[in-house]
Design a protein around this nucleic acid. Structure first.
Lengths: 224, 224
DNA sequence: TGAATGTTTCGGCCCCGACCGAAATTTCGT
DNA sequence: ACGAAATTTCGGTCGGGGCCGAAACATTCA
């Protein structure tokens, strides 16, 4: 039955060490085994075993580079599954573990933005009629396309694109939708290019630069 | 850390017995403990333990009714997580377990339709301009609203609705999107009302009645 | 070629959790 | 009130899997 395969995959996600590795890779980057080991808080041998399982289970892809092996998430569907689990984990977390402030403020969510900033961005784009976004779905309006082009955010217009142009992703800390899909990726990349935000060194957290703070206020009316 | 909570929840999904119970509840119904026990293939005591864990983990809700206790999924987010896992499980299943034909044809997916019928429905509604639906997102057009109203499918128009009006759900057997959200639920319910489809007794499969076969052909141009 | 670094394999320990039998508990029907 | 049915609790067994130490393997650099 399919149930068994589901259980197998869920079991892979069900170990604290492996879960730590996977969430560390949620920003889409690839990390070497040793780093994942220390993130998971286990010895390298143990981590190696975990990583082998995750690769065998098609959750990770390994890319040898020199004497390191870099691991990254196998697909955006893996990221979506982890995201779904984060939402569930957040449910009970009202009374429970606290989410670090920086992560709640702004972070990467696989290949797009998450956190308060991302939710605000989604809200403002809707308010101005650039985006239609119900709780979990979305579409860019023609007016929105112009606005985004002016920002320097260009979107592939091909009809037969593989990925969704714009997808809503339920933010696990804010419990409100933010923007994923091609548009989400484009917004993240453009914001990085313009130095409105910068990736933190050791976490998925993203810091808003002073310039970014100004820009988000002027361009979108977002104030923190 | 949040990782730990993720792992806890994933571990709950990571047991074959519990996974079987959860997938059995994916159609949104509530089932008594004894039935879930036999579905999972374990003794009632064992099932009782599993169910207690699932309730404690907020994945299930128990409703005592007489001397039975009925269990159902705690939220649509739980269903979404399981659906995401099914997609991952399906990835490797190209060479692996076969999906029963009836399930691939048409089935319930928590509170909406899944399978070939559902994917065809989504396609046809798009072709006619009643729906905008990129790979993972969607919105109903005004024209579509009229068409649906004529079918007898009425949608709450409240701006502040809790659930998404229309959401795309990646079909795990077809690997293409079908319609979820309020619209998905409404379409399922109306199709049942009109006796176009009927629930199978012991599975999530749905059978298309002769009347339904005619109606889907006439109304949507869907032929099997 | 030899040392250093990153990663994997092997072997053994140990704990957690799934499982079932037996029995207690709750609720319904009569 | 009593027996039947559904469920839960308790106690004990057992297997799978995570963990680490030691050592082997791979790759880079001097």
């Amino acid at each position: 039955m399919t149930n068994v395969k589901i259980a197998e995959i869920a079991a892979l996600l069900g170990d604290p060490g492996r879960a730590a590795m996977l969430t560390a890779l949620m920003d889409g980057r690839a990390l070497p085994a040793s780093e994942l080991a220390s993130l998971a808080g286990v010895m390298p041998q143990t981590a190696s075993g975990h990583l082998a399982q995750l690769v065998a289970g098609r959750l990770l892809i390994a890319e040898p580079q020199g004497r390191n092996r870099y691991y990254r998430l196998a697909s955006s569907q893996v990221a979506q599954t982890i995201e779904a689990l984060m939402v569930l984990a957040g449910d009970g977390a009202s009374r429970g573990t606290r989410v670090p402030k920086e992560l709640r403020e702004a972070r990467t969510c696989y290949d797009h933005l998450g956190g308060r900033l991302a939710v605000a961005l989604a809200d403002k784009l809707q308010d101005r009629g650039f985006l239609v976004l119900t709780e979990e779905a979305g579409e860019v309006t023609p007016k929105g396309r112009d606005f985004l082009a002016e920002l320097g955010v260009t979107l592939a217009s091909a009809k037969k694109r593989q990925r969704a142009l714009c997808r809503a992703c339920l933010d696990w800390s804010e419990r409100r939708p933010h923007i994923a899909g091609l548009l989400g990726t484009a917004l993240l990349n453009r914001s990085l290019e313009l130095r409105w935000i910068a990736r933190a060194a050791e976490s998925r957290a993203v810091t808003i630069t002073p310039r970014g703070r100004r820009a988000f206020a002027e361009t979108f009316g977002i104030r923190f």
